[in-house]
């Protein structure tokens, strides 16, 4: 047994050094720049999600510190010492019960909180005045379709989706004729947006870190429950965050959140351009 005693002080010193060596720089670096933390949130739902993230952060942080402090205290206090025997104990049922019950309560409470928020952020009907935009993902890019002057997207169905008709528009619906497409996701600030998400080939992701929103686009389906309210004017990356092939690393689109007026201008221009185009097309088609 003495063979194990002789090295004790060295080992403990080593352990302490190791913990300090890892902890201190990691912590110090955290403080010196903002880039170690979440990007500034830019949507309403995102603000709520951040609350929850912080809550869990403090909760788990506290659990971590508590457990590790106690643990390391034990490790130092109960190192092998000559002539001191370990306590003979097989456990303690009361203690066991306590540390089963408390985490259970915490976890169930946390689930309640998080589920409540899940409901708020995803399930709830979006605010009135919400605009619909169809988003179609493909290897390797996104395209967007906006409703025409009526403010409503025409009927579409994934079954109609084809290389010529990537949004699966129902061409018999008069509303479809007004819809127009865009390569940039232009959005007015502080107005709700609901997206109708489809994919042409494989599963893609619709991920906007600043909005704290993620949804997969699944081929063969239209996913229509995702909505958000951008709260900050600016330009963001829409990233595909689901591995989708060799071009996945660079599959993105630009999101432009602008003021209400700017958006109206852009919208009118686009609408006019689309109207001209379809007017030019119409006679050609009837031939």
């Amino acid at each position: 047994m003495t063979q194990f005693l002789s090295r004790k002080s060295g080992s403990i010193a080593l352990l302490v050094i190791v913990f300090v060596a890892c902890g201190v720089p990691a912590y110090a670096a955290q403080r010196t720049s903002g880039l170690w933390w979440m990007p500034d949130v830019a949507s309403k739902g995102g603000e709520q999600i951040d609350q929850l993230t912080y809550f869990i952060y403090y909760l788990t942080g506290a659990v971590f510190v508590l457990t590790q402090v106690v643990y390391i205290y034990f490790l130092i206090k109960y190192r092998a010492k000559r002539g001191v025997r370990a306590t003979y104990s097989h456990g303690d049922n009361r203690l066991e019960l306590v540390w089963t019950a408390i985490p259970t309560a915490i976890f169930i409470g946390l689930w309640g909180y998080s589920n409540h928020m899940w409901w708020d952020v995803i399930h709830k009907e979006p605010p009135p005045g919400t605009m619909e935009v169809a988003v179609n993902a493909y290897q390797f890019g996104f395209s967007f379709q906006y409703p025409g002057a009526s403010g409503k997207l025409g009927r579409s169905d994934v079954k109609l989706l084809s290389p010529e008709n990537v949004f699966g528009n129902d061409r018999t619906d008069p509303l479809t004729k007004e819809d127009f497409q865009s390569g940039v996701l232009e959005l007015p600030v502080n107005r709700g947006v609901r997206i109708l998400l489809t994919s042409r080939d494989v599963i893609h992701g619709f991920y906007i870190p600043q909005f704290r929103i993620y949804q997969d686009a699944v081929p063969g389906r239209t996913i229509d429950w995702v909505w958000f309210v951008p709260t900050k004017v600016g330009s963001y990356d829409l990233a595909c965050s689901q591995l989708c092939g060799s071009g996945h690393y660079n599959m993105k689109a630009q999101i432009q959140v602008v003021s209400e007026e700017e958006f109206d201008n852009w919208y009118k221009q686009k609408l006019a351009a689309a109207g001209n185009a379809s007017a030019a097309n119409a006679p050609a088609q009837s031939k």
Binding site: F4, L5, R7, K8, S11, I12, L14, L15, T67, V70, Y71, F74, L75, Y78, R79, A80, K81, V84, R85, A86, T87, S89, G91, D92, L95, E96, W99, T100, P103
Partner: peptide
């Protein structure tokens, strides 16, 4: 969680050999 606390309970009061 139970397992984690039991591991901590195991080192508590021990005579720890740092092998």
């Amino acid at each position: 969680a139970i397992k984690t606390f039991n591991w901590m309970g195991t080192v508590w009061g021990g005579s720890i050999r740092y092998t």
